[in-house]
Design a protein around this nucleic acid. Structure first.
Lengths: 162, 162
DNA sequence: CAACATTAAATGTATGTACATACATTTGCA
DNA sequence: TGCAAATGTATGTACATACATTTAATGTTG
């Protein structure tokens, strides 16, 4: 899992120290690597938090979308629409949740191509327990409100294309 | 692959527009989602660039590390050390590269537990061709030098723990 | 209404990720 | 020297990701 905690508490974890690459070509290369590395770092921490509850990160995210819809059902298409990673395979993630009886699948009566997916009581309870355990840590709380805004603006700019 | 290009050219791609979530709880939730989403966005674009050359992103990254070592060999341990994602399985990524004859594996004579991995001429040529095609796009070039520095500082702060 | 296109979801295949375990080799030291 | 611990790599399993294809239901149109 590899969460490196420093023994001597220093204020900052510079990317140069995290990776074995002491020098970068320029600030851009460093920013690119830093961005990918930091996102992975956040996701690893989240995954570790869900693990005691037998959930993976995508499974947790799908469950939360379903709670947002509850008591109305969601279709696979709606889940894909709401997911951060559009290319992941919602069908199979729902398979896992159904096996654990955290969701149900029923053919949609109005459109028999579609499948109504609903979170169960067990699913709702699991989400409650996870959130009560004050889990889902996210390092962005290290930032001030203004810094968080700044970060959002910079990230939006990174995704600007032509 | 899902690279959303706007038909009417607006300067910025706000995260609210990218995801179907028009409102966030606060700037922190937005920053967290934005960070993960933007990193995924960068990696998808890179993966799409390597695909015509039959390489995945991890395979490309390993090849680049091997070129950096060339003509000296690398061991699996060295690859893991240099990789961004320490938990990925370098052995199996090298398997794929070896099948494509882009690298060679020989038992290290000095330490017969270790395996010397070397990039081949074909591997070097492939990297050249990929780079000549001016690929490896990275959205961070949208930023100014100062903004890139700012982004690096913010990301480092996000990873600060205790 | 028959033929064809479109849509919704599931399935297939290759690869990657996370983690545990196995196996051989080397090292340290009693 | 002998042997336990450490090291370097490979393999196994479960799950996720990326993408193509399939199956079934529904729309559309001549």
């Amino acid at each position: 899992m590899y969460i490196h905690l420093q023994s001597i508490p220093l204020p900052l974890m510079r990317i140069e120290d995290e990776i074995k690459q002491p020098v970068f070509r320029n600030e851009y290369q460093k920013a690119h690597i830093n961005l990918v590395y930091t996102a992975g770092w956040l996701q690893l921490r989240q995954a570790a938090a869900f693990k005691p509850f037998g959930l993976t990160l995508p499974q947790f995210n799908i469950l939360r979308i379903l709670r947002g819809q509850h008591p109305r059902p969601a279709t696979v298409a709606l889940l894909i629409d709401r997911m951060l990673d559009k290319t992941s395979n919602a069908s199979r993630i729902v398979d896992r949740l159904e096996e654990k009886q955290l969701v149900t699948r029923t053919v949609c009566p109005a459109n028999r191509r579609a499948v109504d997916i609903r979170i169960t009581k067990a699913g709702l309870d699991l989400l409650d327990r996870i959130e009560q355990a004050n889990i889902t840590p996210s390092g962005v709380e290290q930032l001030s409100e203004a810094e968080a805004q700044q970060l959002n603006a910079l990230l939006d700019k990174v995704r600007t294309v032509e």
